[in-house]
Amino acid sequence: MESVIIRSAIVYMFLFVVLRMAGKRTLSEMTTFDLILVLIISEATQQALIDDDHSIMGGMLVILTLVFIDFILAMFSSKFRIFDKIINGVPMFLLENGTLHLDRMKKARVQLEDILEAARKTHGLESIDEIKSAVLEKDGSISVVPKYKDKLLGV
């Protein structure tokens, strides 16, 4: 039983690191290729977690171990700000006051079309000139603040 717990913990941490390195946008919006990759990863993960143990108790132990690790990480993230930044990352400005940060966009694997798509979906904006700022949030979504918001507020 100890080997199931140890395998579960190792696989959880490995997947966490790999998905963190993949970037926020990978987790936010999945393409068909991403879905296929997730399905293949899940099958490989299942095999790594249970090995030859196909018992109900073994499966329950894997689930409990994974949930426990997730609970501990969430608890540390809520108590320690630096841990939260390491685990969940921080929001990143991709566009500020009309200036695109191409280095950040490249690092986050975000294209101008992604920002424009978020602007269309949230505010009906059609041009980069209508956007005051765009932020890649911790969850991988892009928040857009339109320039016209300042005019509406009388700024």
Rank of each mutant, 00 (worst) to 15 (best):
S42D: 00
V11I: 11
L61M: 12
D139Y: 15
Q47K: 04
L95N: 14
L94T: 07
L136S: 11
M60R: 04
L73T: 14
A118E: 12
G89L: 12
G58I: 01
P146F: 10
K151M: 14
K147N: 10
S55R: 02
D114A: 05
I50Q: 04
D53V: 06
D103V: 15
K85I: 06
L152G: 11
R20I: 06
E96H: 12
R81H: 08
I41D: 00
V4G: 01
E96P: 02
A134S: 14
I56Q: 00
F16V: 05
K149F: 14
T31C: 02
F33T: 08
F16C: 07
K132F: 15
G89P: 12
K24C: 02
R109W: 11
F80K: 09
L73E: 05
L152T: 09
L49D: 00
T32Y: 06
I5H: 06
I72T: 13
D139V: 15
R20C: 04
I72F: 13
I36N: 00
T45R: 00
V90K: 15
I72A: 10
V18M: 04
L116W: 08
L49V: 05
R120T: 04
D34S: 06
E113H: 05
R120L: 03
L136T: 10
T32Q: 05
V144N: 13
A119V: 08
K149S: 13
S8A: 09
L125K: 09
V155P: 01
E117C: 07
M57R: 04
L94C: 12
M1W: 03
E2N: 07
F80I: 13
S141P: 13
D103W: 13
A44E: 01
E117D: 09
S8P: 03
M1T: 03
I56L: 07
I36V: 09
S28R: 11
R120W: 07
S127P: 03
A134H: 10
M105F: 12
D51T: 03
S28G: 14
G124C: 01
L15F: 08
L64T: 06
A9F: 12
M60H: 01
D150K: 14
G140L: 15
H54Y: 05
S55P: 02
I50W: 02
L61D: 02
T99L: 11
G124Y: 02
D51R: 03
A108R: 13
G58H: 01
D114M: 10
E137C: 14
M13G: 02
L136W: 15
E29I: 13
P91W: 11
D52G: 00
